[in-house]
Amino acid sequence: EGYSPTLKWQQQQVASFSAVRQSLNKRRNHWQSQHLDSNVAMPTSEDEEGWKKFCLGERIYSELDVVSDNENLGIDYIKVGFPPFLSIVSRMNQATVTSVLEYLINWFEKKNFTPELGRWLYALLACLEKPLLPEAHSLIRQLARRCSEVRAQEENKNEEQILALNLIICLVSR
């Protein structure tokens, strides 16, 4: 009660997500051919720890306190993690998308939800092509269950987190 989104909101999210997936498919070839910055070193498909660091950043991965870095005006993606830029996710084939999804879900099984994790999960779900392979199907169901579990434990209604969890549960289940 009070945590669940309305049916109308869910339907809107499903429609928007579908449009996002279509646009992504249309532009995948274009973004695949775009030049990547020299600091973007994508891990190999099997490198679970490498992908966790790449997506979430060394600060979250190593559970370090976030220290404000005033003298550094640019964003250090090694520390804060690379966001799911189209030029990055378009380079990932379906096997890699599924593997990284699995790595991040493994992470989420033991750790807290963060905005960085939410963005990557959303982006990887958008990259999954249908028909879903059985392992992908099983993975995203596991993801929705974990989101539901974390949501149920949330007592103080950290609003931003509930919204993000609701979004993932909605996209997976619908």
């Binding site: 928007s16 799911p84 963005r119 609003e159 979004l167």
Partner: peptide, 27 residues
Amino acid sequence: QSDDSDVWDDTALIKAYDKAVASFKNA
């Protein structure tokens, strides 16, 4: 459907996610 080329820059998926999460507040 309108042409969404303008909003489909390298950050399009990030913006789509942030927009979806923000939209709940208005639901």
